[in-house]
Amino acid sequence: MFFAGVSDVCLFVFFFQSFEDVRCKCICPPYRNITGHIYNRNVSQKDCNCLHVVEPMPVPGHDVEAYCLLCECKYEERSSNTIKVTIIIYLSVVGALLLYMLFLLLVDPLIRKHDPYTQPLHNEEDTEEMRPQVDSSQARGNTVLERVEGAQQRWKKQVQEQRKTVFDRHKMLS
């Protein structure tokens, strides 16, 4: 089992190294009874033309010039190291965010206080008068955590008010 994993990694490294950073790409449209084709070859920029890239030549010797005039050849260059570094940075950021999310999922129950606003829906009408009113000076938190909790409380209160409105409308319709 361990050796199969090592061979997969070696295959992946070989696959990654099989690409070149420069190439000449010739796009040749259909010509007479020959279908169109795309040719790629690793050649220098000065040799990026139909005569050096298109092999084997699909037309006989006297039609080569006419065929090559139809082909469009472009020299392409890329930096595989830049691509690799960008992918590594991207994966690192995503991994860090996932670890942070896991950390918050584990720590959140420990730092969360009992929330008096999270009552079951069937008890909402009974307990609405008993809810403690939050003092405005107390609602303004100094720390980020207190501000986030305050925003959560406001959001939960709005959601509960919307639920109550929907259920009241539902009762009136039925």
Rank of each mutant, 00 (worst) to 15 (best):
G36H: 04
M1L: 12
L110Y: 08
V22Q: 03
A4D: 02
A139N: 04
R163T: 00
S44Q: 11
G95C: 11
K171R: 08
L98I: 13
W155E: 05
C50L: 04
P120E: 10
F103E: 08
Y39R: 11
E76Y: 07
A66L: 12
E55Q: 10
K164C: 00
V94M: 09
V53Q: 03
K113T: 04
V22G: 05
C73Y: 01
V159Y: 02
E77H: 07
I27A: 13
M1W: 06
E161Q: 07
E149S: 05
Y100V: 05
V93G: 03
Y90G: 14
E55D: 13
E77Q: 14
L106C: 11
D8A: 13
F2T: 10
D126T: 02
R154I: 15
F103W: 06
G141C: 04
C68S: 12
V134C: 02
Q162C: 04
Y39V: 01
E128D: 07
E124Y: 14
Y90N: 12
L110Q: 12
V64W: 00
V59T: 02
R32G: 01
F2N: 15
E146N: 03
V9Q: 03
V64I: 12
E128I: 11
T86I: 11
L91S: 09
E55G: 03
M130G: 07
T118C: 07
P60F: 02
Q158A: 14
L173F: 09
R112K: 15
P30D: 05
R32P: 01
K171V: 03
P29Y: 01
S80I: 10
Y31D: 04
H52M: 14
T165G: 04
F14T: 08
R78W: 08
R169V: 07
S80M: 14
P60A: 13
L110G: 08
R112V: 06
E124N: 08
A66N: 13
E146S: 03
